[in-house]
């Protein structure tokens, strides 16, 4: 009884806290100066049409580096909590249907290709490293669903993940040495506005993020799959 009263008192207090915030929000009529500067600088000096991408990769690049680190820590935590025990050849009970098996073999390369397209065109179209990486991980979910006993090569996954994280920091440091600011992508030619090879190092950095996110999420899915198989026996 006291518990219920306390819970609803908390919720009502939350509403009281949020209400002044909500009532003071005025819809924007124009961009604030910071956003305006980002929009103008991104089109003039960075040659990157997608301004969200230039904020994520360049202006707020250090935040993105920290965020990739958080993702890495979460993956490490999951790997730590789920210990991979040696399985001596026992099979999962679940057997996928013929349609799922054939369909997944057909769709897997196409989904990987689409994910790669999304993170390569991150500076031109709505998309980027995180979205492309999640798509690549979804392709491996499909593969695992079609064949529960499939073994993913963890050495390769860890290698891709570490290498792309390492190169991300290296590219940031190159910007620091050549142009004086960390993660400055302008040390590569800026190219023609709106073409694939433009915007300096932004496509390279976003591709590395895409590979890293894809490898990490594949690892998470695979860890959870291994745990599910422990339960079934």
């Amino acid at each position: 009884m006291i518990r219920t009263v306390l819970i609803y008192a908390t919720l009502i207090l939350m509403v009281i806290i949020f209400f002044p915030l909500l009532s003071e929000i005025k819809p924007l009529s124009q961009l604030n100066p910071l956003a305006k500067r980002y929009v103008e600088d991104s089109t003039k000096n960075l040659n990157s049409p997608n301004i969200v991408t230039s904020i994520v990769v360049t202006y707020r690049g250090l935040d993105t580096l920290g965020e990739v680190t958080v993702l890495f820590l979460a993956t490490t935590g999951i790997g730590f909590l789920i210990k991979r025990r040696k399985k001596n050849g026992e099979k999962g009970a679940f057997q996928a249907s013929e349609i799922l098996q054939t369909g997944s073999l057909f769709l897997f390369p196409i989904i990987i290709l689409f994910g790669t397209y999304i993170f390569l065109h991150g500076h031109l179209t709505p998309g980027g490293g995180f979205q492309g990486g999640v798509l690549i991980a979804s392709a491996s979910v499909l593969l695992i669903m079609a064949n529960v006993n499939i073994k993913l090569n963890h050495t390769v996954l860890h290698f891709i993940e570490s290498l792309s994280g390492f190169l991300y920091v290296i590219i940031g440091t190159i910007g620091l040495f050549l142009l004086g600011s960390f993660l400055d992508p302008k040390f590569l030619p800026l190219g023609k506005f709106g073409s694939l090879f433009s915007a300096g190092a932004i496509p390279i950095i976003y591709s590395l993020i895409g590979l890293k996110v894809g490898a990490e999420l594949t690892n998470i899915v695979d860890s959870l799959r291994a745990e599910g198989m422990e339960d079934e026996k």
């Binding site: 924007l28 961009l31 604030n32 956003a35 305006k36 980002y38 929009v39 103008e40 301004i51 904020i55």
Partner: peptide, 8 residues
């Protein structure tokens, strides 16, 4: 800058 929403 007068055509787009806030990207941040």
């Amino acid at each position: 800058s007068s055509q787009v929403v806030d990207p941040i």
